[in-house]
Simulated assay, not measured.
Amino acid sequence: MKITLLTVGKMKEKYFKGAIEEYSKRLSRYCKLEIIEVADEKTPDHASMAEEESIKKRESQRLLKYITEQSYVIALAINGDMLDSIELSQKIEKLGVCGVSQIMFVIGGSLGLEEEILKRADCQLSFSKMTFPHQLMRVILLEQIYRAYRIAKNEPYHK
C-alpha cells in the first residue's frame, strides 16, 4: 500500500525532521511512504475572516493538484472522527483488503483545511479537540500509522 502525507508548509525544525526520518525508515518495511509539501501562505496578524478564507482557498488549490480520483483521502480536521490506535489499524487494514492502493492523509496549514478539501475527503480524522502545530501533527500521524501496522501484524509495540 502507498501512504501519502500531503501537507501545507515546509518542515523547518530539525527535531521534527529527525522524527519524521525515523518513522519513515520504520514504515518502509510496511508500506511505500511519500510526503508531499505544498507552499503555505503568510497569515498577517489580525487577519479578517475573509483574508483567512482566502489563504485557506489558495493553500487548498495547491493540495487539490495532488489528490487523484483513486486516492482514499483522510483529512485531518479538529471536528473529524476520533479513533483509537486499534481502530485506525483496522481502518487501514480494511482499506487494503478492499483494494485501496493509496491512502492520502491531508494536513492543512496553520488555519486548517478549506471546506472543498473536507468535502472531497472520504474520511475526516481528529486526534484531539486541542490544536497542535501542523508540523508536529506530521510526527504524531506517522507514529500512529507505524503503530497501526505493528498492531495489524501482531507485533509488539508499547501501549
Rank of each mutant, 00 (worst) to 15 (best):
T4V: 12
L5V: 14
L6F: 13
V8E: 09
K10N: 09
M11C: 12
K12Q: 11
E13G: 01
E13Q: 14
Y15G: 08
F16E: 13
F16S: 10
K17Y: 13
I20M: 10
E22G: 03
E22Q: 08
E22H: 11
S24F: 05
S24Y: 05
R26Q: 13
Y30F: 14
K32E: 12
L33F: 09
L33C: 03
E34S: 07
V38D: 03
D40M: 06
E41K: 07
H46P: 00
A47L: 09
E51Q: 15
E52D: 02
S54P: 00
S54N: 13
S54M: 11
I55H: 06
K57S: 11
R58I: 09
S60Q: 02
Q61R: 15
L64Y: 06
Y66C: 01
T68H: 13
S71T: 07
V73F: 03
I74A: 04
I74C: 02
I74T: 08
A75I: 00
L76E: 02
N79C: 03
D81H: 09
D81K: 14
D81E: 15
M82I: 09
D84S: 01
I86A: 04
I92L: 11
E93V: 06
L95R: 09
G96E: 13
V97M: 12
G99I: 12
G99E: 11
S101E: 15
Q102V: 06
Q102T: 14
G109S: 07
G109P: 04
S110A: 15
G112E: 06
L113E: 07
E114P: 00
E114I: 02
E115W: 07
I117C: 01
I117N: 03
K119F: 14
K119W: 15
A121H: 05
C123N: 10
S126V: 06
F127K: 01
K129C: 04
K129D: 10
M130G: 03
M130Q: 10
Q135D: 13
L136N: 09
L136C: 04
R138G: 08
R138C: 06
I140T: 01
L141C: 04
L142Q: 02
L142G: 01
Q144T: 01
I145M: 00
Y146V: 02
Y146C: 00
R147G: 08
R147F: 13
R147T: 08
A148D: 07
A152V: 08
K153L: 15
N154A: 11
Y157K: 03
